[in-house]
């Protein structure tokens, strides 16, 4: 198996980017300003991040760095090892998961993690077979095995659903996002979501986004001038309640990751482009606090290495780097 490395940068208040040593509060960790290798192993992947911790898979092991919350600890537990992509927690604490019996054609939505643990779903809806569930601040999305996207969540942020709730398909019930069916470059093969935004990649490597622009108020509360100048910056012009194709400088999109107010895109040529908030250096750009347009990031890789996947945690970012020759 080819040699692999996990690269990371960004928010590191709880030392969650460090899998070798624990936290020393006498010398508290600073944010990691550029992408650098944090774990090396022939078989690794990023799994999940909470505000204060990061969970990765290294061979057969699920490892945590930082200070895990209850949700991350649950995913790490053996019970969920085989279906960790089938559960997600939203910013408002609601949890969505496939049926507890492992039936991935039922989606249960719970008011909280506690309600999940005692299996008291608020809603239980039959759906086509689910490959993956993701969550953002107030909405959930699920990708079906046939490449459809299903969305549901809080109606106050209707744009996050990517579809118009109607009586037959209310916003609170998992229902298909029609605008993503029958796209020119085929069905959806991946979804990624965080903050107020969700993105989908088609089989033909096009990127679609929907949601709301980051709230301007999110920056005004945060003083010291830091980030204040970004108050009105939009993430994508294309970002509305209707899924729209995003042009990443004409490139085909191999992988993408949506973070809290930022996005990473990996092109089929293996080039990395980023956009959005960089206050915690989550884009790996040490000189700026915000990228208003796509900027290419070139991490210092070894000879023969190539980026093959990207992920976004909570204001931190991860790259899978493979040795190709």
């Amino acid at each position: 198996m080819a040699y692999k490395e996990l690269y990371a940068c960004g928010f590191n208040a709880w030392n969650q980017l460090n899998f070798t040593t624990g936290i020393n509060w006498a010398q508290p960790p600073r944010n990691e300003r550029v992408f650098h290798s944090i774990v090396q192993h022939p078989d690794i992947e990023f799994v999940y991040a909470s505000i204060s911790a990061v969970l990765i898979r290294k061979g057969p092991d699920l490892l945590i760095a930082g200070h895990p919350d209850a949700f991350l600890t649950l995913i790490q537990s053996r019970r969920l090892q085989n279906c960790r992509h089938h559960i997600a927690i939203a910013g408002n604490g609601k949890v969505a998961a496939i049926g507890l019996d492992g039936s991935n054609s039922i989606i249960n939505t719970y008011g909280s993690l506690n309600e999940y643990q005692i299996n008291k779903p608020q809603t239980s809806v039959r759906v086509p077979t689910i490959k993956r569930i993701v969550a953002n601040r107030t909405a959930f999305h699920a990708l079906t095995s046939t490449g459809d996207v299903v969305s549901w969540g809080d109606l106050r942020f209707e744009a996050l659903l990517g579809r118009e709730p109607i009586e037959e398909y209310p916003g609170s019930h998992p229902s298909v996002v029609d605008d993503l069916a029958a796209l020119p470059t085929g069905p959806i093969r991946k979804i990624t979501s965080q903050g107020f935004m969700t993105a989908a990649i088609t089989e033909g490597n096009d990127l679609y986004v929907w949601g709301e622009q980051p709230k301007p108020e999110l920056r005004t509360g945060n003083g010291n001038g830091k980030g204040k100048e970004n108050a009105q910056l939009k993430l994508f012009e294309e970002l509305t309640g209707v899924p729209s194709a995003v042009d990443v400088l004409g490139y085909d999109v191999l992988d993408a990751a949506i973070g809290e107010g930022y996005a990473l895109v990996l092109t089929t040529e293996g080039r990395l482009f980023v956009i959005g908030d960089n206050i915690n250096c989550q884009l790996g750009l040490p000189e700026i606090t915000h990228a208003a347009e796509w900027i290419e990031v070139i991490p210092s890789l070894q000879r023969g290495q190539r980026i093959t996947a990207v992920w976004a945690g909570y204001k931190n970012s991860f790259l899978l780097v493979e040795q190709l020759f």
């Binding site: 208040a13 600073r30 910013g91 408002n92 604490g93 107030t138 830091k226 915690n280």
Partner: peptide, 27 residues
């Protein structure tokens, strides 16, 4: 005051952001 001044301000800003994000997660 044994930690750097700018470290404390930076992390307080992070905590303010976390709380602020929650303000927009609920009615």
């Amino acid at each position: 005051q044994k930690l750097p001044h700018n470290y404390i301000i930076e992390r307080l800003d992070d905590l303010l952001e976390i709380a602020n994000e929650k303000f927009y997660a609920f009615p």
